[in-house]
Design a protein around this nucleic acid. Structure first.
Lengths: 139, 139
DNA sequence: AAAAATAGTTAGGTAGCCTAACAGTGTGAT
DNA sequence: ATCACACTGTTAGGCTACCTAACTATTTTT
C-alpha cells in the first residue's frame, strides 16, 4: 500500500463506514422502512418541508432518486407532496411519518447504540467529533 | 429526539457513514470496479486466499452474495476459484487483481483523501481511532 | 413571443443485498 | 458399511438504492 497517513485514514474510514452500514441495515427488515427513506424523513422533520430538488441536494442524490423515494414515502402515508407553483412541489412529513421516524430510527440505531454503550464518555466524544469531520469531508 | 449521548453519537455516526459512502461512490464509474468488489479484493490481498464461506463471513454478507461477487471478479480475471476438496473452493486474487486493487482503491479514496488532506495530524489520528472503534462496534 | 433555464417524472439499467430451494460432498453414529 | 445429517456452494427470483437519458410542463429572460 505504501499509504501516507492521510490515505491510511481515508482507507480505514471507508472500511469502517461500509461495515457500520451493513451492521445497522440488518434491522431494516423489522423496521418496515429503509435507511434511505428514514434519512429523508429525518431531513423533513428536522429541516422542515422542502422542495423535491432541495431534498435531493440535501441527501446528495439525483432528482429521480428522490422522486422515487418520496413516492414510496407518500404511498405509505409518511410524507406528502403539495404543489408550490405549478412545476415545483413541496414535500412534507405527515404525522404518521413523524411517529414512524422515531420508531424506525431507534430500531435501526439500537444495535449501534448497544455496541457503543460500553464506551466511556471520552470515546463517545471522540466519535462525535469524528462524525462531524466525516460529514464535513463528504460535502 | 430527547436522545442520550450514546444515541446522539450513534445517530451522527450513522448519518456520517451514509454520506461518506455516497461521496466516494461517485468515483466508482471511473474505476471500473465497485466498492464491494474492491473490498473483497482487499481482503484477499491482505488476508490471503480464502474459502468462499470464509470470505462471506469476513465481509459479513451471505454466501450467495459472495458467490456472485466472486463470480464477477473471476469473470474480469481479478480473482480465481480453485477446488479445495470437492465441495469447498479457495478464492485467490490474480496478479491482475492485485494491480487493479491499488489503482481502484486509490481512485475511490482520492476524493476522501483530498478532503482530509487539509486536516492537521491530530484530527487524522482522531479519525483513525474513530474508524477502529467503528469497526469494533460493527462486528 | 421565442428561447432558455428550471422542476419533476418516466423509462430503462446496474449493483448489492437478501431468502428459499437445491445439489453435491463429507462425516459420524450405529 | 451405510445412512442420516451437516456443510459448501450455486441458482432462481426479488427488493432497494442508485444512476443517466429523455421527456413534459412550467417559469423566466431577453
Amino acid at each position: 500500500m505504501a499509504a501516507s497517513n492521510v490515505e491510511k485514514t481515508a482507507d480505514l474510514l471507508h472500511s469502517a463506514a461500509i461495515r457500520l452500514l451493513r451492521y445497522v441495515r440488518k434491522e431494516d427488515a423489522a423496521s418496515g422502512i429503509t435507511g434511505a427513506q428514514l434519512s429523508v424523513l429525518s431531513v423533513l422533520v428536522f429541516a422542515g418541508p422542502q422542495t423535491l430538488g432541495a431534498l435531493a441536494q440535501a441527501e446528495q442524490v439525483r432528482p429521480p432518486t428522490m422522486s422515487q423515494l418520496v413516492g414510496e414515502l407518500e404511498r405509505r402515508g409518511l410524507a406528502q407532496r403539495r404543489p408550490l407553483d405549478r412545476r415545483s412541489i413541496q414535500v412534507s412529513v405527515t404525522e404518521r411519518g413523524r411517529r414512524l421516524l422515531e420508531a424506525g430510527r431507534r430500531r435501526r440505531l439500537a444495535r449501534l447504540t448497544a455496541s457503543l454503550s460500553h464506551l466511556p464518555a471520552g470515546k463517545l466524544a471522540l466519535l462525535q467529533e469524528a462524525a462531524e469531520l466525516m460529514l464535513k469531508a463528504a460535502s
